[in-house]
Design a protein around this nucleic acid. Structure first.
Length: 570
DNA sequence: GCCGTTTTCGGCCCGACTGTTTTCAGTCG
């Protein structure tokens, strides 16, 4: 059983307990589910090590239930609950406006067990007659069902960034606006974003809202007032705008940036120190006197914490580190000087090498690496040794002409047997060798791990590219043993790539953190296949920050001379 | 059911919004 499956069952138990009107227990199950959902270790391993009760929110009883699930794949407590409430809770919970209580009410009064029953009940107008509900609730349910049918789920950070930044900069230009920030998981730079929260301080709120509800590509205005408005774009993305007072801007920014677990810990910390914290500010518990809220800095400091970048706020140890004043000074967006993976029209890229280089220069890069494919996947037009040698000459010419260091690289397939698809002699002629998996994804964990480690040990590999092979919302990562892989990379001086492509963002923050803890170093590559892709370099910096990396951990922050030395060392 | 700088019992994050409530419950973030 995987972490997510177990978390899902615990969530469902929480919902069913809530339907039964049981107090507090649901929250306990939710907390455990959230911990397990966000954990990087395999829960089966945690169980084998006897550490289940070390998971926050997991005590004796929930641990017993997890053990039963792992051992038998079933849970009597869960199936008993399901017998008592034969309703597809997860399905109905997906309908916004429905929670455990209303689901229970609809089941009792109208025998609604699933989405189909719900739709039938709503469309035959039975819901409006249920006591406690009404016409508006029924309408909302019908709308929510329609929406859930075409809902695409979360959005890839890189792809919604332009829209979010444009709205932000347009609001900034409006008369009366002082501060604007996009909060939420967007500000934490999570790989996928559910919706967008924009916070504004302005002396003229109406101007902000008038602009906002008139944005092009609006599908629906979901709510509109002077302090808060909500819209949905045609692509399904929901955006909220809140106009705030100056003295609550910092606390609102803190609150809406989250994440939820981080905020819960912060609020508890506030309580222990005799304060109460909300999006309106930090207040004395007694007398509710306002203490702080103008900036995030004041709030964190009042709570005895260093201020941390939004990317770190996931309740994975950052609060404890901030208490001890031991937060790392994470890499800055300006620290990165170049891009170490991109493709040209020599393999499967769109643009010529020169076009890629010009774009990189335009973005202020001091170096890049051209890393076209080498291997056996025909569709990417891989280079053979003859073409590689020809490419070297072209690169030298362009490099001279444009005055930027271009590393001669290649992204070489790691074959099924762990050998690179390029001779050692040719590897030695390259400035930089990236190795990666592009075939036979379905190996066992053990086979895949030794396949990769063989390549990193025996060949001249500088960078192991897109280390998990995942494609966000498209393809799961292949199975690999990370501790073994990370140790192998460190021992063989192989940099782990943080792939900046919006659909990859691979490694993620948690794995970066784990790899750094065993001493690994990292390299950023946009994996661009056209010149527009180069701007995503900052997504890799976001991941690095989510993984607590400092500039010195990342190859792309070095000077050209120093990079050359590092590369020649192999 | 969990948990502890008010610790083994008695609390459990906080506030807005919405609708249907005439004083509040449910949902959401």
């Amino acid at each position: 059983m995987k972490n997510l499956e177990i978390a899902k069952i615990l969530y469902e138990i929480a919902e069913m307990l809530e339907m039964l009107g049981i107090a507090f227990k649901p929250r306990a199950y939710q907390k455990a589910a959230r911990s397990i959902e966000g954990m990087s270790e395999d829960i089966v391993e945690v169980y084998k090590n006897g550490k289940l009760e070390d998971i926050p929110g997991v005590g004796k009883h929930i641990a017993e239930k997890i053990v039963e699930l792992i051992k038998t794949g079933r849970l009597k407590y869960y199936s008993d609950l399901k017998k008592k409430i034969p309703v597809k809770v997860d399905e109905l919970m997906g309908i916004s406006g429905l929670g455990p209580k209303r689901i229970m009410l609809l089941y009792k009064k109208l025998h609604v067990r699933n989405l189909k029953d719900l739709e039938r009940a709503a469309k035959s107008h039975k819901i409006q007659h249920v006591e406690g509900l009404g016409v508006k609730v029924e309408e909302d349910i019908i709308n929510a069902i329609e929406f859930s049918k075409k809902k695409t789920g979360r959005f890839l950070l890189g792809y919604i960034m332009p829209a979010a930044e444009e709205i932000k900069s347009e609001i900034k230009k409006l008369d009366g606006v002082k501060q604007v920030e996009v909060a939420g998981s967007y500000r934490r730079r999570k790989e996928t974003v559910g919706d967008i929260d924009i916070l504004v301080t302005s002396t003229k709120p109406k101007k902000v809202m008038d602009y906002f509800i008139g944005i092009k590509d609006i599908d629906r205005v979901l709510a509109s007032g002077l302090s808060k408005s909500m819209i949905r774009l045609k692509n399904g993305l929901e955006i909220d705008v809140r106009v705030l007072k100056d003295e609550e801007y910092g606390s609102a920014l803190q609150y809406f940036t989250g994440n939820k677990d981080h905020n819960i810990v912060l609020r508890n910390l506030a309580l222990k120190k005799g304060y109460t914290l909300s999006e309106y500010g930090l207040f004395k518990l007694k007398g509710k006197k306002w203490v702080a809220g103008r900036t995030e800095q004041e709030i964190y400091n009042k709570l005895g914490l260093q201020l941390m970048p939004p990317e770190m706020r996931e309740n994975t140890g950052e609060i404890e580190a901030a208490q001890r004043k031991e937060l790392p000074r994470v890499i800055d967006y300006n620290d990165v000087k170049g891009d170490l993976q991109m493709h040209s029209d020599w393999s499967d890229g769109v643009n010529k090498i020169e076009e890629m280089v010009l774009e990189a220069k335009k973005l202020g890069m001091k170096f890049i690496a051209i890393t076209d494919h080498v291997g056996q996947i025909g569709i990417v037009h891989p280079l053979d040794e003859t073409r590689l040698e020809r490419q070297f000459k072209i690169i030298d010419k362009i490099s001279d002409k444009l005055g930027i260091r271009i590393f001669k690289g290649a992204e070489v397939d790691i074959l099924k047997n762990g050998r690179l698809a390029l001779s050692r002699k040719m590897q030695n002629k390259l400035d930089i060798v990236l190795a990666s998996i592009h075939s036979a994804f379905k190996m066992s964990e053990q086979e895949m791990t030794s396949r990769i480690c063989r390549a990193l040990e025996k060949d001249r590999v500088h960078i192991f590219a897109h280390p998990t092979g995942r494609l966000l919302q498209q393809r799961e990562a292949y199975a690999v043993n990370f501790p073994t892989l990370f140790n192998c990379a460190r021992k063989n001086n192989v940099f782990l790539e943080i792939n900046c492509h919006p659909e990859r963002m691979d490694l993620n923050g948690e794995l970066i953190k784990a790899a750094k803890n065993v001493g690994c170093r990292f390299s950023l590559g946009t994996d661009s296949h056209n010149k527009e892709g180069l701007k995503y370099l900052q997504l890799g910096v976001s991941l690095a920050r989510r993984g607590w990396l400092e500039a010195k951990d990342v190859l792309n922050t070095y000077s050209v001379d120093r990079i050359e030395k590092v590369l020649k060392g192999k």
